[in-house]
Design a protein around this nucleic acid. Structure first.
Lengths: 251, 251
DNA sequence: AGAAGTTATATCATCCTATGAGAATTCAGG
DNA sequence: CCTGAATTCTCATAGGATGATATAACTTCT
């Protein structure tokens, strides 16, 4: 097997995206050398790329510090307003938030991470803010629901991409424990996470599947402060979440 | 004058951005030829660019239809969390929304358009949704507050970039009327707009200026349903908005 | 259904453009 | 003020992006 037709490639464009990803992941303004360094590019090349991106409003700078530019906002808007998945999920999240009173979210996997792409607050909002567009790991909370569907090969690849995994309490998660967890989640069809990504909070997640391929394309999650939810409420919540997840029809 | 040092340029990257902009402005999935057409590129070139962008999760496709991809969301998140302007404005918008009970927004100009980059709802929320990332014209509503600071040369350029201008009621706005409006706004230091972009709604805007250059870098606006605000309330609101706009300290 | 017209995908020789070394300049900080 | 580091600029070269062309897959007619 594997007569993999090699993917299309364009060096300059790939590199421009590398630069953007550096800025996106940095979370703060960076100087030229830092960007060049992190992207693994020559300084002159990096400068040229940044120059073009700046000219197009996709990068901004204050003096010598570069950061993400305003025009990047239109891409996100376009994604959110044209994605069939997001459109199909919105009413479902709405109803889920109403029925449970909790905050309902939709996560999408992208590479070795996941993104929050939709969110509806319930009556008891969480005290921490998790804005649309946040990039989160796959080994914590709802992430595992997304990871559970990966092939062994993809999992191996993921494991050495992310390096050592830890939870909110700083404890190390061994690859074995992680894989065992994924197995359980896959078997159960949903997942409960307590104090994983965020201390004092709890989440219940279930996978959203493509109606034709059956592949997991997203996860629906409800989140709450640990103290707001008793142990015996959880099974009821898991039913709600699973129902919601399967109510999303995505082609 | 005009010893303009010509800007850095990289054909392939510029074209990739052109393609992205086409998708961002389309508001729906497009087919290959349409994209090539709108971007003014050869089909083969467009296909190659889309292939790379898709490989990087910045474009997605269902069959033959291309649309914006998930990974674009991280760029917006990065902009919103690292822009000093947005950070400085947030608490001000918060207070403005509380004091007036109306929805307070921050707009930034980019080229011949403006973007909603921050928004805080007051007690009486508007009935139409204007999500973060929406791209709006400069000739309506708060747009004019941003346009008022442009140089004559930039205005001329703007005018033939946008073509014929109309308002929410479909009436044509002549360039002369537009320029006259800008003059008034510049002179007054704030702006009231009724039924301009959205029928039945009203907005009051004021410019946010850079503390060193004095240039207009953004606009703060409060919006309301026309019926919720009486004529004599408006001058009070304009004071609030101007105070808010000048309370934003941006380097 | 079948044909004509579109659209998408694949291939490849050519020329143009991105590249990175290097020099010049500006900046930071001791 | 001086020194090392970071940024900006220039340019020859190699290597990659380009688009004409060809083939295949879809649409849309009659």
């Amino acid at each position: 097997m594997s007569e993999q037709k090699e993917p299309v490639t364009m060096r300059s464009l790939e590199r421009a995206i590398d630069v953007l990803e550096v800025l996106e992941d940095a979370g703060r303004a960076l100087r030229l050398v830092d960007i060049a360094d992190r992207a693994g590019l020559h300084v002159a090349t990096t400068q040229r790329l940044l120059g073009v991106l700046e000219g197009r409003g996709r990068v901004e700078r204050d003096g010598k510090n570069y950061r993400a530019g305003v025009n990047l906002i239109f891409g996100a808007h376009a994604y959110l307003t044209t994605s069939p998945l997001v459109a199909a999920s919105r009413p479902v999240l709405q109803e889920l938030a109403e029925r449970t009173g909790l905050t309902a979210s939709l996560f999408v996997r992208t590479g070795a991470h996941r993104a929050v792409v939709a969110r509806v607050h319930g009556l008891r909002p969480l005290r921490y803010e998790l804005p649309i567009g946040a990039k989160l790991p796959l080994h914590l909370g709802a992430g595992k629901t997304l990871a559970a569907d990966l092939t062994p090969a993809e999992l191996t690849h993921l494991l050495d991409q992310v390096g050592p995994m830890t939870d909110a309490e700083g404890r190390t998660i061994s690859p074995e424990a992680f894989l065992a967890d994924l197995g359980n989640i896959k078997h159960q069809g949903f997942q409960v996470a307590v104090n994983e990504r965020q201390l004092g909070s709890l989440s219940v997640s279930a996978p959203v599947r493509s109606s034709q391929s059956g592949a997991v394309v997203a996860a629906i999650t409800i989140g709450a402060a640990s103290e707001d939810v008793s142990d015996d409420e959880i099974s009821g919540l898991s039913i709600e979440v699973r129902r919601a997840a399967s109510a999303v029809i995505v082609p």
